[in-house]
Design a protein around this nucleic acid. Structure first.
Length: 566
RNA sequence: UGGGGCGUAGCCAAGUGGUAAGGCAGCGGCCUUUGGAGCCGCCACUCGUAGGUUCGAAUCCUGCCGCCCCAGCCA
């Protein structure tokens, strides 16, 4: 939609600084030198799990960079391991990318699209004497590989004739051999200091049904063999991957050079780490399988589907990707950065609404019985175009339990015996009495009087009062449930073998009996609101008409909580 | 003891030989009918460290230190 290289990053500054990072520098050089004429990237997920915020960084990088350079980005599923992959994942991945706002148009590909071509390429290598069929089993291959400090040893099958290799490879494909009995290996250098170059396996025998090719194949290409050649076939110019593949780059290059096919450039960047969560697919899977969370889209999960259900916006995630930048240094981003991106987006777009999570009844003694006033409330002070709405006010209200204290500390601006407070959009009230449950001693009801002259907007309403609190009319209020989410882990870095011990037992608090303003009865799944003074909430997909359920997306910044803490 | 990378503030991150951007967090203050939002100010005499080159070094050179990745028929 916009011109290139200058799309909004720091929206609040009104600036649109050009994004700079080492990848763009490389691209600039490549374009300038004529190495490539366009920018063509790809996002290559393996469909073996749900996408998470770390993938979002990569998606924004790949799609975003291509777009800024007026190039394109493919979506390619790296589906070379049928044992771990599933269509459930290919569907969720597409949904997540689309939701983020990126479009691969007609460029949806699968590594499995290229199985035949890859097989032909392998034959070429065999004919060049650059690949061979090995009869060593997995354990023997490991033993021949050597160690980090010692060179490996050649396989006794390394020098088979081209004819024999061709024959054996063909028969591997035909299914003549059992799983694990043979592999096709690149013939490179068993003494290379780079272990990836010690005759890496290109194909393994796997009699497994693939989610797309079914039983057509019983040999499957390894990542190193499939990935670069797939990039080449698609004409990818810049193949952006994470740091752990840096060691694989010589192999990546070796294959395309041996084949003399289009040569993409692999560039590695540091993967995203976030505090107070885990990011590895293995651990996320474990959280799901062991029921520590309700599923992949549990609002506490760092998955894209979890963030979506939690109430995150695509814009907030893209803003996050811009803010954290791209580099090669291992890093851990403080989750507050993500939360700030969210707040900054939601602040501008979420409708304000009043909701009382922990209600306590408040009776205005001098307010006429049966009277109802429709008061005008602003939908979003940050955006006048969002207009206003009417909310009912009456004699009996609910206010937040936290907004009253019998013995308030200093700097407590809310309601307490004898104190005045403003009811947002309504009147200034004074607390005249407290009714307690005779048995428990809990506060059952608060009594107040209102200053009839202080209706919102009137001159007398200008009077300074320390605090303003939110409320909801008891007879008009709608019941709701709030799911109050907190961070999944108690520690910034839940690492190590006992990472599950730092799971936060209070990461979900279900609050029932909330009272929300009547207009919310019509809220639809995924609608986002700011509950004034509390935080941003969205309607959960479990919500039903008559049984409203809200997820707390994120709290508002709360300086009182900060003062209180200490 | 092999190979590949990375070290700029509590956390990210610009910077590419001319005298340390920006964001988050934190801390002060202003303003406020959300203790929200907004606004203002503070927060690296120094860039892992020790030398060297230079009029001048985070940027160039050398040594040292620290951290990450690699020994799947996973990706």
């Amino acid at each position: 939609m916009e011109d290139n290289k200058s799309q909004g990053t720091e929206q609040e500054t009104g600036q649109t600084p050009e994004k700079r990072n080492f990848i763009r520098e490389i691209i600039d050089e490549d374009l300038k030198s004529g190495k490539y004429e366009t920018v063509h990237t790809r996002f290559p997920p393996e469909p073996n799990g749900y996408l998470h915020i770390g993938h979002a960084k990569s998606i924004c990088l790949n799609f975003g960079t291509a777009k800024d350079y007026k190039g394109v980005c493919n979506l390619r599923f790296d589906d070379t391991n049928p044992a771990k992959e599933d269509v459930e994942y290919v569907e969720s991945i597409q949904e997540d990318i689309t939701w983020l706002g990126f479009d691969w148009e007609n460029r949806l590909f699968y590594a499995s699209d290229y199985f035949e071509k890859l097989f032909e390429y392998a034959v070429i290598l065999i004919k060049k004497g650059k690949a061979y069929v090995d009869d060593l089993d997995a354990d023997e291959i490991r033993q021949h590989r050597g160690t980090l400090t010692e060179p490996g040893k050649d396989s006794p099958y390394r020098n088979r004739s081209v004819e024999e290799n061709l024959d054996l490879f063909e028969r591997m494909r035909k299914g003549e051999f059992p799983d694990g009995s043979k592999t096709l290996r690149a013939k490179i250098d068993m003494s290379s200091p780079n272990i990836n170059m010690r005759d890496p396996v290109m194909y393994r025998i796997l009699h497994a049904t693939h989610h797309r090719t079914g039983d057509k194949w019983c040999i499957y290409p390894m990542y190193d063999w499939a990935h670069g050649q797939s990039d080449s076939i698609e004409g990818i110019t810049h193949s952006i991957c994470t740091l752990e593949f840096e060691d694989h780059r010589p192999l990546y290059n070796w294959f395309v050079e041996q084949l003399q096919i289009f040569h993409p450039r692999q560039i590695e960047f540091a993967r995203l780490n976030l505090t107070y969560t885990v990011m590895s697919k293995r651990r996320l899977l474990q959280l799901v399988q062991e029921k520590h969370v309700s599923g992949w889209d549990d609002p506490r999960m760092p998955t894209i589907s979890g963030l979506r259900r939690r109430g995150y916006t695509p814009e907030s995630i893209k803003l996050f990707a811009d803010r954290i930048g791209v580099s090669k240094a291992d890093s851990v981003i403080d989750v507050s950065v993500l939360e700030d991106c969210l707040r900054s987006d939601l602040n501008k777009r979420a409708q304000r609404v009043m909701a009382v999570l922990h209600p306590v009844k408040l009776v205005i003694e001098n307010y006429p019985e049966g009277q109802v006033e429709e008061l005008e409330a602003v939908n979003n002070p940050e955006d006048e175009s969002m207009g206003t709405r009417k909310i009912p006010f009456s004699k009996v209200l609910y206010i937040e339990r936290d907004d009253f204290m019998e013995n308030p500390p200093k700097k407590y601006f809310r309601l307490s015996p004898g104190a005045e407070v403003r009811l947002r959009y309504a009147y200034i009230i004074k607390c005249t009495g407290v009714v307690k449950d005779p048995k428990t001693g809990d506060i059952a009801e608060l009594h107040c009087t209102y200053d009839t002259e202080t209706k919102s907007g009137s001159p007398a309403s200008q009077r300074k009062v320390k605090g303003t609190i939110h409320w909801v009319s008891a007879q008009h209020a709608v019941d709701a449930e709030a799911r109050v989410y907190d961070r999944l882990f108690n520690v910034p870095d839940p690492g190590g073998d006992n990472w599950k011990e730092s799971l936060n037992p209070a990461s979900l608090e279900v609050v029932k009996g909330c009272k929300v303003e009547p207009g919310l009865a019509a809220a639809k799944v995924q609608d986002r609101f700011q509950f004034e003074r509390l935080g941003y909430y969205c309607v959960d997909r479990d919500s039903q008409p008559g049984n409203l359920i809200f997820n707390r997306t994120v709290t508002l910044r709360d300086t009182w909580a900060k003062i209180n803490k200490g």
